[in-house]
Structure formats: structure tokens, C-alpha cells
Nucleic acid binder design. Structure first.
Length: 480
RNA sequence: CGGGGUGUGGCUCAGUUCGGUAGAGCGCUUGGUUCGGGACCAAGAGGCCGGAAGUUCAAAUCUUCUCACUCCGACCA
């Protein structure tokens, strides 16, 4: 009976069907619900809390680096969207349009922002006049709409939450510096807080953001070996400034175009967290963003003094600054273990009559189920240590997965063979720099270019595709 | 956009072949027994079968259209 139930309620094993595993976890961990509009999801409290934690960490980092938050309108007039040619061509196919106000047709239709470069530019044109007005370091937290055909929770939705930074600088050097600064800020956030290793580097020409001079990305590898772009940072040069007429007068009384950047991270990164750390028991959350960092499960809670002691520990740990939940519902302890494992709570604390008698409790880490018996004296320190242990444990696991899935190839045949034998992952291979080869490699092997890592290695002298002298080592992979 | 799968109480699904007026398990409510890895007994509540139109005396079941979810592929950050 218990066995049957387990079968019915368990999630699909990851190595049986990773896509199905992902959908199961997202639903069963109660992160989201579907809404009546395709591709628009409801963030349930537990899922939204993860985003809130991501947001508060990033927001603090943005402010530490001098950025200010603003809020731009939801709508962009068609004429405004059309001002920068590459930009509109990139986004036009997937924008949603508002054509009526009430029952009256609008004189000019409005698009629901797919990104806000044009709005920021229009505004900057109005407020920037002098070198004294620069730099402008703005960010906004909002949602954007891109009318995708295929949708998946977090990974590809029609409306998604994100932040978009838009900055304006006097010189190209300053703007380029900002582009890299924010890329590194994202990368550090992923690696340190999310325990998700990333590779940093520029995108190839064909893969750049619509209207950008250069686009940089951080790329992570998921459990199944497919790549996910966890964040991007773009350098625009003065192209948008010219298109939108943003000019300032410099110290020599010369009229100049400023240089611009934009950078963003979206709720997609939650999909990345799930696919990086999750396992067959469900979600595994890094402590920094886990809505519940530690769950207290009282054992034999009907026995005298157990709930009281559990509540006391909860209060102590709360006071110490941890996000703690005490589950005193009448489900059995075993049920609760499974439930919070599904939800990815990084550390579980068990406390029962025997523990109370001996002045200890049990701390169990989610990712490896390692049990530690720790004295109640000094529990705060033990919990802090355990959470740190989890963070490092997650990092190690994710890092090893990436390393195991990263290999160098020198021919397209080798790439094909490698994918067939070892499965998906990062392929390091040399590239001549031509778009033809990039396309051919995609066509022949199925992997696309992810980025040109800053950390270059010389795999060989020749392009993996055409054999011409190589210019870069590119990281190739199938991508989400 | 192309191909496959699925929509039936909150959840997982049976029932559709061959039309006859809706079932099971879990969950929920109440009471009792349990309690260190998804407990058990008893009683109870809860569904016009994704939506629309059609065929029929009669539709979850047949026909047409449509919507959503999901997987694979193409496209796309």
C-alpha cells in the first residue's frame, strides 16, 4: 500500500525523462500554477519567495555599485520601438500589441514592452544635456512580454519577471567597463550565492542582442548537459544614442553621443537553479535563496515537551537570522521528511524525546542526507556551518557535473561522436570566426555557440569546421 | 509553425472500442488508534466528464470546431 502510494506520487526520475522530471518538480514543489493564458504562470508563494530572495540580493549589489531603481511604462508606442532598426527587427516577431483603448481603436498601436531600451533612450534624450549628467545608472524590476510559441515554466514564458539595467556613460571605455562589471556581478552571484558554476564570455556576432555592439553572457550547464544562459550584459556603443538623439556637451563644449549598456537577469534563473541542483527526490535549493533554510520536524510530537522544545529552537534560530519553519502539523515525521525534501529545504532539524533527553538534535543536509547529531548549546553556529557545508556541497556537485560534461574536440565528427558517447555538455572547439561555420556546426552536430570564454585555451590551430586558421575557442552546447 | 500524447471531484487515473445518465485510490472533514523515513479504522462532503456546436429518445462515450497542458522538432534569447 505504502509502496503503491509512493509510486503514484513520486516524480519521474531525472535520468528517465529530464523534461518530465522538471515539470513534475516545478508542480509538486508548489512553485507555480498554470493560468488561463498560455505561457503566463502563477507564481505560488513558495516559488515567488525564491524570486524575492534573488531580487533582494541582486538589488543590494546593484545599489552597492551605484545604481538607482526607476520604473518605466508598460507600453511602447510603435513609432518609438521602430527607431532603432536592428532592435525592432529582433523583437518585432514576438511583441504583443494593444490596439484598442476601451472600444476605441488607438491612433497608434502600443506594444507591451519586450524589453525597455527604447523607453530608457527616449527618457535619457530628455534628461541628459551635460557631461555633469553622466553617468546615468538606472535599473528597473518589472515584467516583460515576449509572445513565445513554446513555453515552459520559468525557462520560457510569455510574461516573465526580470530586472533590466540601462546605463549611459560619457565614454566607450566607461560603458565597456560597466558591461563587464555587471557580467561579473552576475557571475559572482551565480557562483557564490546559487552555487552554480558559470562560464563568462562574449557571444558570437550572430548571437548578439538586437542592436548591441557586443553581448556578454554567463553560461551554466544543467544536470542533463544542456546549457542555460543565466544572465547577459550588453555594450551598445553610441548606436542607440544616435538613433534616439541622446547628446551631451563635454568639458570642451563639444556635443557628443554617450555610450550605453544594458544587462538583465530573469526568473529563468530559477529554472537554472532547479536543473542544476535538483535530484530524484525533488528540488534542492541553495541556502542563499531558499524561502525556508531550515525546517524543524518534531518527532513524536505528541509526547510531553517536544513541541515546546521545537518552538523554542525555532525562536532561537529565527532570532539568529535564519529563515526557519516549524512543521507541527499532524502528518507523520516521515511524511514531512519527504515533503520538505521535495521542496528543497537545504537543512532539516529533527528533534524528539530522545534528543531532548541528551540535549541534542539532528541536522540533515538535503543534498546528501548526511546526518549530524549536534548539541543544542551553540546550535546557531552548527546551523550556520551546516548551511555553508550545503552551499559548498552543491557547488562541488554542480562543478563536477560541468567538468565531467566539458570536453575538447577538434573536428565535427569528433563532436558528434562525443555527444553520442558521453551525452550533452560543453564542447570546447576552435572556430575561424565565420558565421557559415557556426551555422554548419549547428546543423551537423546540433550544438550551437554559447560564448567565447574569456578563459581561452588553444585546443588546436584550425577551425573545427572548415580547417582555416582558428581565431577563438568557442564553447558549444545544446541550449535551453 | 510541424508531429505525437493528454484533458473526467483538490491530485493520480479507470470508464470511450460497442451511446443508457459517473467510479477507484489518494487528499479533505469528523471521531478514534498511531507517531525516529510518505500510518490505520470508521463515517462524511465533493464532479452537469476542458469549451462550443451537431447527431440521437438518450452523449464522458459518436461527428465537427476550438482552448489548454505536455513531449519531440523547427524558430527564438
Amino acid at each position: 500500500m505504502a509502496q503503491d502510494k509512493k509510486l503514484v506520487e513520486s516524480i519521474t526520475p531525472m535520468d528517465t525523462d529530464f523534461a518530465q522530471w522538471y515539470t513534475d518538480v516545478v508542480k509538486k514543489a508548489d512553485l507555480v500554477d498554470y493560468s488561463s493564458v498560455k505561457g503566463c504562470m502563477i507564481y505560488r508563494p513558495y516559488g515567488y519567495a525564491i524570486w524575492e530572495n534573488i531580487r533582494s540580493i541582486l538589488d543590494r549589489k546593484f545599489k552597492e555599485t551605484g545604481h538607482e531603481n526607476v520604473y518605466m511604462p508598460l507600453f511602447i508606442p510603435e513609432s518609438l520601438l521602430n527607431k532603432e532598426k536592428d532592435h525592432v527587427e529582433g523583437f518585432a516577431p514576438e511583441v504583443a500589441w494593444v490596439t484598442h483603448g476601451g472600444s476605441e481603436p488607438l491612433a497608434e498601436r502600443l506594444c507591451v514592452r519586450p524589453t525597455s531600451e527604447t523607453l530608457f533612450c527616449e527618457h535619457y534624450a530628455g534628461i541628459v544635456k551635460s557631461w555633469r549628467d553622466l553617468p546615468k545608472l538606472y535599473n528597473q524590476w518589472c515584467s516583460v512580454v515576449r509572445w513565445e510559441k513554446n513555453t515552459r515554466p520559468f525557462l520560457r514564458t510569455r510574461e516573465f519577471l526580470w530586472q533590466e539595467g540601462h546605463t549611459l556613460h560619457a565614454t566607450a571605455e566607461e560603458a565597456e567597463e560597466e558591461t563587464i562589471r555587471m557580467l561579473n556581478l552576475y557571475a559572482d552571484f551565480c557562483e557564490q550565492e546559487l552555487a552554480m558554476p558559470v562560464v563568462r564570455g562574449p557571444k558570437t556576432e550572430s548571437d548578439k542582442f538586437a542592436g548591441a555592439v557586443s553581448t556578454y553572457a554567463i553560461e551554466a550547464i544543467m544536470h542533463d548537459g544542456k546549457a542555460l544562459q543565466a544572465g547577459t550584459s550588453h555594450y551598445f556603443g553610441d548606436g542607440f544614442a544616435r538613433a534616439f538623439g541622446i547628446q551631451y556637451t563635454d568639458k570642451n563644449n563639444t556635443l557628443r553621443y554617450p555610450h550605453q549598456t544594458s544587462w538583465g537577469v530573469s526568473t529563468r534563473i530559477i529554472g537554472g537553479i532547479i536543473m542544476t541542483h535538483g535530484d530524484d527526490s525533488g528540488l534542492v535549493l541553495p541556502p542563499a535563496v531558499a524561502p525556508i533554510q531550515l525546517v524543524i520536524i518534531p518527532v513524536a510530537q505528541h509526547k510531553e515537551g517536544v513541541l515546546e522544545k521545537a518552538a523554542e529552537l525555532r525562536d532561537r534560530l529565527k532570532a539568529a537570522g535564519f529563515r526557519v519553519r516549524l512543521d507541527d502539523s499532524d502528518n507523520t515525521a516521515g511524511w514531512k521528511y519527504a515533503e520538505y525534501e521535495m521542496k528543497g529545504v537545504p537543512v532539516r532539524l529533527e528533534i524528539g524525546p530522545r534528543d531532548i533527553e541528551s540535549g541534542q538534535c539532528v541536522l540533515v543536509s538535503r543534498h546528501d542526507r548526511k546526518k549530524d547529531f549536534v548539541p543544542l548549546d551553540g546550535l546557531e553556529k552548527a546551523v550556520a556551518d551546516k548551511l555553508e557545508e550545503v552551499r559548498l556541497g552543491l557547488w562541488k556537485k554542480a562543478y563536477e557535473n560541468r567538468e565531467r560534461r566539458t570536453r575538447a574536440c577538434t573536428t565535427t565528427e569528433e563532436i558528434k561522436a562525443s555527444l553520442a558517447e558521453q551525452g550533452d555538455g560543453f564542447i570546447k572547439a576552435m572556430w575561424c570566426g565565420s558565421e557559415e561555420c557556426e551555422d554548419r556546426i549547428k546543423e551537423m552536430t546540433g550544438v550551437g555557440s554559447r560564448c567565447i570564454p574569456f578563459a581561452q585555451e588553444k585546443i588546436s590551430d584550425r577551425c573545427v569546421c572548415c580547417g582555416a586558421p582558428a581565431r577563438h575557442m568557442v564553447l558549444w552546447a545544446k541550449a535551453y
